[in-house]
Design a protein around this nucleic acid. Sequence first.
RNA 1: GCCGAAGUAGCUCAGUGGUAGAGCAGCUCAUUCGUAAUGAGCGGGUCGCCGGUUCAAUCCCGGCCUUCGGCUCCA
Length: 641
Amino acid sequence: MPMTPLEELRHSASHVLATALLRLFPEAKLDIGPPTDSGFYYDVDLDHKLTQEDLTRLEAEMKKVAEENQPFLRKEVSREEAKAIITARGQERYKLGRLADIPEGEQISFYQNGEFMDLCAGTHVRYSSKLKAFKLLSIAGAYHRGDEKNKQLQRIYGTAFPTKEELAQHLERLDQAKLRDHRKLGRDLKLFVIDDEVGQGLILWTPAGSIIRQELQDFIGGELRKQGYQQVFTPHIGKLALYKTSGHFPYYKESQFSPIVENEALARIVTENCACGEMIARLEAVSAKFREDINARTGKEVITADRVRPEEQLLDGFMLKPMNCPHHIKIFASQPHSYRDLPVRLAEFGTVYRWEQSGELNGMTRVRGFTQDDAHLFCTEEQVAAELIGCLALVKIVLTTLGMTDYRIRVGLRDPDSGKYTGDPANWDKAEAACRAAAQTLDAPFTEEPGEAAFYGPKIDFVVKDVIGREWQLGTVQVDYNLPIRFDLSFTGADNQSHRPVMIHRAPFGSMERFCGVLIEHFGGDFPVWLAPEQVRLVPISDKVQEYGRSLLAQLQAAGIRAVLDSHSDKLGAKIRRAELEKVPYTLVLGAKEAEAQAVSVRSRARGDEGVHPFAPFLEQLKEEIRTRALPEKKQPAPAA
RNA sequence: GCCGAAGUAGCUCAGUGGUAGAGCAGCUCAUUCGUAAUGAGCGGGUCGCCGGUUCAAUCCCGGCCUUCGGCUCCA
């Protein structure tokens, strides 16, 4: 695919960076330097740890290279010539490997600017003087070829634009984005806290944040009732045996919290002088019968003989649940089902726990304990298509109601080269076809991505970006032919025979934590009235109208409105300012003339002062705005601070 | 987990080898005010934690914890 002019510019900037880098650090070994969505980077192997000051020096050197107005010259060479060039330049450490990646028969080319020459398919700007606006942004570690078994290189990130104005605008946008960061707004608006003593990645929802979450849960709960879901509740833990049946353990044990082993069993193991490794082996072990049962049900060897142990050496324990499905499956399995009962749709806001690597934790968007707005649908194969469409419709209702229109749809398929998936390929094919067909019913573009499936089945994900451009999977719908087999689920068909149901896993929000994190950034803290923790601020101008304020507060609360009376002795301007900073949608200013007329002076967060209105119609209009879950109007620019 | 950076009051940040300061926020008092900051006073910090060097460490050194930017991972 040819590069866009902007990519060409940024790619050229990365060559200029490499040119500057070799001038300052001739011993540097270069890897690759491609353009990205918002700039470019170059990966380099260098013993010297690059510092912020080095970036400044490199940027200055890049300016010189740009001013030297070097032409970018393409040179097409044979594979042998290429090797010679790389070796002559002392860059064989990574570049020879990169050269080997180029398929036989494909043209090998170098680009030269000034004294620098790099293996590169191109393309580039004609002259380095085209680079008028660039900036080096940060240094980060990055594994060679993205593989953590390889050496970690230093990655220099930068960005470039055709003009200085566009660069300045971009940098300004980055600064603005920081103000919308859910971690900052979450603290400022007191929506959630994370406490070291409680634990990394564990969200404590404060009263204000809990209101938002509760409103979202009530909203989706209403939609679920319309669609025939049934609410269930299940505990936060389950026995290890349950997850051995489901396949979560031991295959995914590195992303789960350690098992909780009963004290007596633990004591017994300790007195046997059992080593740690032995204990893990016993936790992972299964009985011969368990192995036979599962293997027979799934029709292949999912549990190998080396996991079988004598009964007395088995060790069970409990696990914090990494998913809700096994619990829901057990509810389904507790009753015989007729085809007439299906689909069965079991829904729960279920909290799950996953052991995320410490370096991956991020505010509310990547956490170790989170609550999925989960549901599992058990249906016949014929019902899958319609149920999938119903699930997708639900996701769309959620996103539309919240005005989140900037998302992409990803159909996650299995990676044919990976062994991490369980189940029969024929069922996978059916499930993937069903997902593709359902995605086509959405009138929105989607991409099919191999390797993005869940381990038990393909899925349709709704992916949105946060303020700094990182993508997060929110809503998800997944088809599963495998867990019904592993748990030996069945229903009685019209033919009076036993049949296997198909499962659909779906979560329109995904996780309440991640969704709220993204939602905070989406609204920049200016929540629609129905979600706003505080909907109305009552501001009496003086103590003389406190009594009127109290009576309005009582009326608002009686109407179910979340209102607060500001009885500080500040001047009006200070109270207005405080309400604005706290992003309260409506501030009602109360003075003598309002009290006299049973009126309020309305100040809207979006529109500013709206003048005096009688209280009763204001209240009705407010209730209507809440009932319809109206989205906030675009805010007028704030006055200069 | 890995690479790099950071951690001083609730928040934003200054500062020094001799046990710390500002603004905002909070509290008290005065003020009773018409659409983004009324004034005065007061309280508040084991300078992330643990060790080491030193007569003395918030500052220098080491380890750990946490956060941030990436990488890897994300059933």
